[in-house]
Amino acid sequence: MASREEIITGLADILNELAGVEQSDVTEEKTFTDDLDVDSLSMVEVIMAAEDKFGVKIPDTEMQNLKTVGDAVSYIEANQK
């Protein structure tokens, strides 16, 4: 299981690769849409990559609740196998 820090680092890598977000900009309090400028299409790609990387399933209904990086980290942390 990945630690909280490993999840943040992994998400930063994914966001950098798929949405061009600087890894140093990815912190728990940042929102995906407002702070990191991730559009809805990129967000779907980020979620799919995170599911693969961390072995979790993030349903569409849950995706809308993941507003900040911290929300995503907490969800992944709680749902890892």
Rank of each mutant, 00 (worst) to 15 (best):
S3G: 00
R4A: 01
R4P: 03
R4F: 03
E5A: 04
E5P: 05
I7H: 00
I8M: 01
G10S: 01
L11M: 01
A12E: 08
A12D: 07
A12W: 07
D13P: 13
D13L: 03
D13C: 07
I14N: 06
L15V: 03
N16L: 09
N16E: 08
L18P: 11
L18A: 14
G20S: 12
G20E: 06
G20H: 03
V21G: 08
Q23A: 12
S24P: 08
S24K: 12
E28D: 13
E28W: 09
E29F: 15
T31V: 10
F32I: 10
F32M: 09
T33H: 13
T33F: 14
D34C: 15
D34G: 15
D35C: 10
L36N: 12
D37G: 10
V38T: 06
S40C: 11
L41M: 14
M43A: 15
M43T: 13
V44K: 11
E45Q: 15
E45C: 14
V46C: 13
M48W: 02
A49V: 06
A50F: 02
K53N: 03
K53T: 03
G55N: 02
V56F: 03
I58D: 00
T61H: 07
M63W: 05
Q64Y: 11
Q64M: 11
K67V: 14
K67W: 00
V69A: 09
G70S: 11
D71E: 10
S74E: 09
S74D: 06
Y75P: 05
E77D: 06
E77T: 06
E77Q: 08
N79P: 05
Q80I: 01
Q80R: 02
K81Q: 09
K81C: 03
